[in-house]
């Protein structure tokens, strides 16, 4: 199963180390392959380092694409994490 959504980064400092760490940790809990897509460039959503290299300041629109048996749950959980500004951190 493939699930795809778009999200907007709302944290003040963007997707920096702490949010990226939380994102990768949550993504790793799922079996599905998870990709983060920015401007056509896709990185592994389970890799904190790859997420950091696409440098997403506040306001960046990103695609999340999950493929696997739990794709739907994965996308839902990640969307909530982003919407809640990663647990309300900067």
């Amino acid at each position: 199963m493939v699930c795809e959504i778009e999200i907007t980064i709302k944290n003040r400092l963007g997707l920096h180390a702490r949010p990226a760490s939380r994102f990768a940790r949550l993504a790793s809990e799922f079996n599905s392959d998870i990709l983060l897509v920015k401007d056509g460039e896709a990185v592994d959503g389970k890799s904190i380092l790859e997420i950091l290299t696409i440098a997403c300041p506040r306001g960046t629109v990103l695609g999340i694409r999950a493929e696997g048996d739990d794709a739907e749950q994965a996308v839902k959980a990640l969307r909530e994490l982003v919407a809640g500004r990663f647990g309300n951190i900067d």
Partner: peptide, 16 residues
């Protein structure tokens, strides 16, 4: 502690 947790993640990151 969040910094150290991200370090754990980096050690197992596929790029490393």
């Amino acid at each position: 502690s969040e910094v150290l947790k991200s370090h754990l993640l980096m050690l197992k990151d596929r790029m490393i």
